[in-house]
């Protein structure tokens, strides 16, 4: 977790938006969602998982270090309204993105049930923060080290089966998780929004790296999203496109020049 001084971004930030950053002159531009912003302090909070060279380098930053290139806030803010009963689901580092949205939804007067999941308990993040803002919090781990032994969708399924009132679901996490959530809510016609995490370069609609298919139309996640109707997203395409640089990612991680950069890494995968 990093708190970064970026007054202009902090001032404009709304839940769901992201930044693009670069850690050094030979670095890659990667998107990271803004987890929090403090306009008074002029700071934003970024949370990332060390999966590539850039996120590794971010992990090595010390207090007072500089991030040479940081730009934002990018993307459209997520839709925050009074929907009634809302379930917010955060998977892995996706919880960092889900948290500010959950908080905004709660503030807007919704009843909030949160489900956060991770591979194991050490990878759970923002548990206390989520508990504080939720009317109900469920935890799941793939290995059973904390909370429900299984997936976030297990809990969601139970909620649906118990006929809990759910007016809207917000799911943010790995593509496979968002796909599973969307498949689960579709037959029940529960409106489900997801936040997509494709590979990006500029983040301003200039390159089309982040194109996704939504309701059969090609959209650029950086300017048309990153938030979309989960029932309309082609997740298989998203997952395929997230694998474009898998080979290069291995090369990048092996050629360990001073730990920086990454190949198309994203927050949730």
């Amino acid at each position: 977790m990093l708190k970064v001084k970026a007054p202009a971004i902090a001032k404009k930030y709304k839940a769901g938006q992201f930044v693009i950053l670069r850690v050094h002159d030979k670095g890659e531009r990667i998107p990271l969602t803004i987890a929090d912003a403090n306009e008074k302090e002029g700071t934003i909070t970024l949370i990332s998982q060390e999966v590539g060279r850039t996120t590794k380098a971010l992990g090595q930053l010390r207090k007072g270090d500089q991030i040479p290139d940081l730009v934002g806030p990018l993307g459209k803010p997520s839709e925050v309204g009074h929907f009634g009963h809302v379930v917010v689901i955060g998977g892995g580092v996706g919880t960092a993105v889900a948290y500010p949205e959950a908080r905004a939804l709660r503030k807007a007067g919704n009843r909030l049930v949160s489900i956060i999941g991770a591979r194991s308990k050490d990878l759970l993040i923002l548990e206390d923060e989520m508990r504080k803002i939720s009317d109900e919090l469920h935890i799941t781990t793939d290995d059973g080290s904390k909370g429900h032994h299984g997936f976030v969708t297990d809990v969601l399924r139970q909620l649906i089966e118990k006929q809990t009132r759910i007016d809207r679901v917000v799911a943010i996490g790995p593509a496979i998780m968002m796909k599973a959530v969307a498949n689960l809510t579709r037959p029940h016609r529960i409106k489900t929004t997801v936040s997509l995490n494709p590979i990006m370069v500029d983040g301003t609609g200039m390159c089309g790296a982040c194109r996704v298919s939504v309701a059969g139309q090609t959209k650029f996640a950086c300017v048309d999203g990153p938030s979309f109707d989960g029932h309309e997203v082609d997740f298989d395409l998203l997952m395929a496109r997230l694998r474009i640089y898998m080979e290069q990612e291995k090369i990048a991680m092996q050629s360990s020049t001073i730990g920086t950069g990454g190949a198309g890494e994203t927050y949730g995968s």
Binding site: K26, G27, E28, R29, R53, T54, V201, D202, M206, C207, G208, A209, Y245, Q248, E249, I251, A252, S255, T257, T260, G261, G262, A263, G264
Partner: peptide, 25 residues
């Protein structure tokens, strides 16, 4: 399949032709 913008941006702005010295693939 790339747009020319992405293909050229990766190469020109991000110097992907010098990967892995440069991080962008």
């Amino acid at each position: 399949i790339y747009s020319a913008n992405e293909f050229l941006t990766r190469c020109n702005l991000m110097k992907a032709y010098a990967f892995p010295e440069y991080d962008t693939p």
